[in-house]
Amino acid sequence: MTSSSILSIVTFIYGLAAFLYLAAWVFKKPPAGQTAVWVSLAGLAGNLAGIALRWRESYQMGIGHAPLSNLYESLIFFACVLTLIYLVIDRRTGSHVIGVFTAPLAFLAMAYASLSPQVSNRIEPLIPALKSNWLIAHVITCFIGYSAFAVAFGLSIMYLIKNREAAAAQGGVLAARLPETAVLDELTHRMILFGFLFLTAGIITGAVWANSAWGKYWSWDPKETWSLITWFIYATLLHARLMRGWHGKRIAVLSLIGFTAVLFTYFGVNLLPGLHSYGAPG
């Protein structure tokens, strides 16, 4: 079996997990939630196996590079880290309902990678600019950061749902099955700290790489600039928490805005004029 076919199957496993989480939440069926965790674990195992196999395939083709060099490979890695982070949180908090808001993201990333005609899943040899160990460090750190922000995004949506229900004082059943707002707020914050550290490291490794390839660590091209915009937004969030009145809801909204900026850095920038469109700098 090829890595691409394994990863296509993983797409459906993540889809199934997302469906089970949703069912467990809506119909209050805890066993479905427990099953969903096992399904997610199976998806993660398949995801890792797919990445490892793809790595091997690239060596068998005589190309030989880590599977972190194009849009397809980065999306696969993103889904993998996202699921891993979710599972760790699930284990720590014992709350499967968080999966309702993270498993669909993993599914969407995989589905986009596997099914979109714009995303090539071919293993290609590296062009000269990408032949650098900084590429690996850059992609790994950036995507760990993006995955953490994705989880924070899911948690913030949960926060807003829970918060609205609480404000309306009608005690909706679905919202009641979500964790307490204080827990969600704290978890969001932890995820954002984690993401901020890795985004910082991602920007830095990118800068060091650019310096070794083109002699400038920063050239304000749109992708770089958008990663910095994202960084400014999350730095705003970290400081806004120190101000009176900036808790809970406003932080959740900032987290949504931050993740929108992540998405734009990732996909939107290719629509803008510039050199950094994925894998073809220089």
């Binding site: 915009i229 101000m243 920038v269 510039g274």
Partner: peptide, 15 residues
Amino acid sequence: VVLLLTLAATSVFGT
């Protein structure tokens, strides 16, 4: 907070 948000918002123009 004001400065960081302003930097984020204005940086968008240049992209």
